[in-house]
Amino acid sequence: MRVAAVGIMGLGYGSFADCEPKFLNMLLNSYPRGVVENSENQTPKSAWLKILGNIGPEEMKKLSIIPSNIPITEPTMGYPSLDTERITLREELEAVYSEFSKLIGRGRVVASINLYEREESCESLKLVDEYLERMYMDLDSFMFFSPYGEREGNGRNKYGIYISTLPRPQEDQTIKLEEIMPLILDL
């Protein structure tokens, strides 16, 4: 099975209305969807620390998780390991996709796109949309999610996206960060 979860920091459904990303809109209308709710961990590092919980590198190996660009270390953890201060969103997407195509099928690839929130715009979303489509083409099961949404005042919108081959656990509830990893393991 070719399985992956990709977190896109700072992507919210409001951007679907503003920017009309072609591929993501198609997914939204074709696959189980939901809303991630998180008002406390609104930086890439804090969000991923919450998502990973007690799962460290050894546990990841046991669970066949292959980390990719996870921003809990500097440079980021996994394949690729990037210094996100020195690269652009396009470079990040290219590096992640390049490793992704080599790793897929060897385990559950868990990847993070960290620079969308720094370069938030419709142009950036178009780029993310294109790369997600490329990844999707290589996958049997997927989860595309974001732990929080767009810039809002001095913070971030507390609602992120969830689109996956796996339905959300409870129909009438938002998804909390601590529920993400169990869902990835169920993919």
Partner: peptide, 17 residues
């Protein structure tokens, strides 16, 4: 609307605009 409803968040932004 409801918080868990993904299309509700899309529509909300359309209305805001």
């Amino acid at each position: 609307w409801a918080p868990w409803c993904a299309p509700c968040h899309v529509l909300h932004r359309i209305i805001q605009r």
